[in-house]
Simulated scan of single mutants.
Amino acid sequence: MSAELLDRALVEEAAKKSGLLWVRSDGGRDHALWHAWVGDAVVVVGDGGEQPLGGLAEGVNAVVTLRSKDKWGRLVAFRAAVELLTPFTAPWQAAVDELKTKRLNSLDHEGVTDRWAAESRVLRLVPQGLSVENPDAMPDSDHAAVPVPTAATTREPVPEGLPRLLLRRKKKR
């Protein structure tokens, strides 16, 4: 078997088994997305009340990273061409049919097709060439990213009376 066929088989198998992938569009940040494998490409749905797709758009080049199902570590990464699927065409319908089975906790399972057609984008991420990372060629870097700047905080001063409330013992009668 050729290296290209083995590489394509690894990408397909990893995409079919993992429910989560990371996508980085040209110069952007990695975004975790749930997805499905349809035909020869990964499909994702987003925006309009679904997962945010970040900078993904038709014609943009992206790098898709898939994890190992059993170890959850990075398994393979490949370059992908992004295609926007037109609602109610045959490729769009095939993608939506598969994505509906992967969509967890949908409030309107019966109406999700119409909602995705009206409000969301369904994108197809088609692998291009050999993978850029695979078990035989992993980078030395840890892929750590600086957290996104935000005004949100989780640390506030402890209210003055809280320690007494937490440490208060029941009085004996």
Rank of each mutant, 00 (worst) to 15 (best):
M1L: 14
M1Q: 11
S2Q: 07
S2C: 12
S2L: 09
D7L: 06
R8L: 09
L10K: 05
V11N: 02
E12H: 05
L20P: 00
W22S: 12
W22F: 13
R24P: 01
G27C: 06
G28R: 13
G28C: 04
G28H: 10
R29C: 05
R29N: 08
A32C: 06
L33H: 10
V38C: 06
G39P: 07
V42Y: 06
V44Y: 00
V44M: 01
V45C: 03
G46Y: 02
G48W: 06
G49T: 03
G49D: 04
Q51T: 13
P52G: 08
L53P: 08
G55T: 12
L56D: 04
L56H: 04
E58F: 01
E58Y: 02
V60E: 10
V60P: 00
N61W: 02
N61Y: 00
N61G: 12
V64H: 03
V64R: 03
R67S: 10
R67W: 07
K69S: 10
D70E: 15
D70P: 00
W72A: 10
G73Q: 12
L75Q: 08
V76F: 04
A77Q: 15
A77H: 05
A77K: 11
F78P: 08
R79N: 14
A80E: 09
A81G: 08
T86P: 05
P87L: 08
F88G: 01
F88A: 12
A90C: 01
W92C: 05
W92G: 09
Q93C: 09
A95T: 07
V96R: 03
E98S: 15
E98T: 13
L99S: 06
L104R: 12
L104K: 11
L107E: 11
D108A: 11
H109K: 15
E110Y: 02
V112H: 00
V112I: 12
V112Q: 01
W116V: 15
R124Y: 02
L125V: 05
L125N: 04
P127A: 04
Q128V: 13
L130H: 03
L130F: 02
L130K: 04
S131P: 04
E133M: 10
N134K: 06
N134A: 09
N134D: 15
D136E: 13
A137N: 14
M138P: 13
P139R: 13
H143L: 07
H143P: 00
P147K: 03
P147I: 02
V148R: 14
P149H: 05
P149G: 05
P149M: 06
T150H: 06
A151V: 08
A151M: 11
T154Y: 10
P157V: 07
P157L: 11
V158Q: 10
P159T: 10
E160H: 12
L162H: 04
L162D: 05
L165H: 11
L166Q: 12
R169Q: 15
R169V: 12
K170W: 14
R173A: 14
